[in-house]
């Protein structure tokens, strides 16, 4: 007997070719670089690796990066939830426009975003000049880094929540209000549990991007070693200093964060799909 008829687009040749292609590309472009990062970082052995991490400037860069993420992530989480709630639960003129505007940070190159902030809030920009009168300097200092990071990462949470909240509709929320729930009870007992995994997913992405952002931050930070140098900027700095192992050590930290992010993201997606 001959084999069963194939479904459309499911010939064995096509299938094997596509699978093979995907595996080859994944290995070449994703897996090999990751292996290289860790082998290079460990080129001087574990002692050298630890020593490179404990370098004064590297430690400061790690600290600043975590500090920026710690400010950015909560800020954008709250902002994203508010925005998603606004766009999916209310109808007002300009709602669609607002939903589109959320994507601006995705559409604009981060370098351009950094440049705009520099022009606006730098000592020669109009907001910057006004702030300068009060001795407030945002650019080339941590506030500037936080500002551009917030800008670059602000769509992630809202992007995750909006389609989900649209799909879930407002039925359950209406039911809760009819049953007497206050606004806060409604949010805490009905809305939040329904969106929690998507929210976590958005938060993870925000965090990953906040930690890894290079372009926008490099424009506004000035890369002052030990002051305004974040981890991604530090990688470049070390590389330019010909400290290859040091650069890869710093890079391995970023790659490590990325791997953890992926693991948590997978769990969040899996939990979301079961709700």
């Amino acid at each position: 007997m001959s084999s069963k008829p194939h479904r459309v687009g499911d010939g064995p040749v096509i299938r094997r070719t596509l699978i093979g292609l995907a595996v080859v590309l994944t290995v070449l472009f994703l897996f090999m670089p990751l292996v290289v990062i860790f082998t290079q970082a460990l080129a001087q052995g574990w002692a050298g690796y630890i020593g490179n991490i404990l370098d004064e400037y590297t430690l400061h860069a790690i600290g600043l990066t975590l500090f920026v993420a710690l400010l950015t992530v909560p800020l954008n989480t709250v902002f994203g939830v508010f925005l998603a709630w606004l766009v999916t639960r209310f109808s007002f003129p300009g709602r669609r426009l607002l939903a589109t505007l959320i994507d601006i940070p995705f559409a604009v190159s981060p370098v351009v975003a950094g440049l705009l902030y520099l022009l606006l809030y730098g000592s020669n920009g109009w907001a910057g000049q006004w702030l300068g009168q009060y001795d407030v300097e945002l650019m080339f200092a941590w506030p500037g880094i936080v500002m551009v990071t917030v800008f670059v990462t602000c769509p992630f949470v809202a992007r995750e929540l909006i389609p989900l909240m649209q799909q879930q509709g407002r039925d359950e929320e209406e039911a809760a209000v009819v049953l007497g729930a206050s606004g806060w009870q409604l949010f805490r007992r009905v809305t939040l549990p329904n969106i929690r995994w998507a929210l976590l997913y958005g938060v993870i992405l925000t965090n990953a991007r906040a930690v890894g952002e290079f372009g926008a931050v490099s424009v506004v930070s000035g890369s002052i070693r030990g002051e305004t140098n974040t981890l991604p900027l530090h990688v470049e700095l070390l590389y330019q200093d010909q400290n290859i192992v040091g650069a890869f050590t710093a890079a391995s930290l970023l790659a490590g964060i990325a791997l953890i992010t992926l693991a948590v993201k997978t769990i969040a997606e899996w939990r979301q799909s079961r709700v």
Binding site: D171, E174, A175, A176, V178, R189, N194
Partner: peptide, 27 residues
């Protein structure tokens, strides 16, 4: 709505999906 104290049964039931049946009724 909250103060009108009416019972409302929605067309697609609108049960709270993350709560058990008894948690739904107790809400």
């Amino acid at each position: 709505v909250r103060e009108r104290r009416v019972g409302f049964v929605f067309q697609h039931y609108a049960l709270f999906r993350h709560m058990t049946v008894s948690e739904n009724v107790a809400f």
